[in-house]
């Protein structure tokens, strides 16, 4: 069983990823596909006159300000564009892609942000963390031959949609389903010793090394790797989505092996 996380930034070739997942599925491999939504959300936010805003956490981490309107736009982009496209493309390549929303649950987070010199708690921020995965529902879908496709969207127990980090959601899913491997596809070759030097690829690192070298968004992927491995997943591979047959290349060792 493999969980594949593919980023939502611009320049990701969805069809290449879908074709590769379909090929694995055709060989009898069970695959769950988790995707991002950042580029489409930014574009749709612009079109709908509610441009994306960034907030900075006290520790300096940048993230999307997710008020209710942004969450609604995020859902349109994540479900209505990304999940929709991956299900189309998986079917085009012979796999039974099934978009699923509602299998991820978790609490809304009390997010803090810097406002000038001060720090404030953002009360109307629809950001969350995945704490429960409906493994029964996902396993049942896999059992029926489907390739579940999940957006980075969870639901709180109060019935609120939540923007969650796709990498860590994928790690939770991989652990909940006792997957062998978590493949994280992104728009860089893998974990780089020096961020600006795409030649400085680290082929294998421990979790601690991963967290040391990771910068910016890669920090989340290192965190996701830690959580997946701690959850019993045997292998985490962070590799490029730009390669031909990107998933199988990662399984064959492309990019960075963590753990």
């Amino acid at each position: 069983m493999i969980v594949v996380k593919v980023g939502g930034s611009a320049g990701i070739d969805r069809e290449a990823v879908a074709a590769d997942v379909a090929a694995l599925s055709a060989q009898g491999e069970r695959v769950v596909l988790v995707h991002g939504a950042s580029a489409e959300t930014d574009r749709l936010s612009e079109l709908l006159g509610h441009p994306s805003r960034t907030v900075v956490s006290p520790s300096g981490q940048q993230s999307r300000r997710t008020d209710r309107r942004t969450l609604e736009i995020f859902a349109m982009a994540a479900l209505g564009i990304e999940t929709f496209s991956y299900v189309e493309l998986l079917r085009r390549h012979g796999a039974n892609g099934v978009g699923v929303f509602g299998a991820l649950s978790g609490p809304r987070k009390h997010v803090r942000a810097r406002e000038g010199e001060r720090v404030v708690v953002l009360r109307d921020d629809y950001t969350g963390k995945v704490e429960r995965v409906d493994a029964r529902a996902l396993a049942a879908l896999l059992e029926s031959g489907a390739v579940p496709v999940l957006p980075p969207l969870a639901v709180s127990d109060d019935g609120e949609g939540l923007n969650v980090d796709g990498d860590r959601a994928a790690a939770s899913i991989a652990a909940a389903l006792a997957a062998d491997t978590l493949v994280i596809l992104t728009n860089v070759p893998g974990l780089l010793r020096a961020v600006e030097d795409t030649g400085s690829l680290l082929r294998q690192v421990s979790v601690e090394e991963a967290e040391t070298f990771a910068q910016g968004r890669m920090k989340k992927k290192a965190m996701a790797a830690r959580e997946a491995l701690a959850g019993g997943v045997r292998r985490v591979q962070i590799s490029s989505a730009q390669l031909d047959r990107p998933v199988r290349r990662a399984l064959e060792g492309a990019g960075t092996l963590v753990g």
């Binding site: 939502g8 991002g36 939504a37 950042s38 959300t41 956490s57 006290p58 520790s59 981490q61 993230s63 999307r64 997710t66 995020f74 994540a78 987070k109 009390h110 997010v111 803090r112 708690v121 950001t127 969350g128 963390k129 980075p152 939540l162 923007n163 969650v164 980090d165 796709g166 860590r168 989340k220 965190m223």
Partner: peptide, 23 residues
């Protein structure tokens, strides 16, 4: 503490700091 209310001014224990955000 968190400023829960401005008029009247009301303070409550702030929720714990969270290290992570969404997409």
């Amino acid at each position: 503490l968190e400023v829960k209310n401005l008029q009247p001014l009301e303070l409550a224990v702030a929720p714990a700091e969270e290290e992570d955000w969404g997409e």
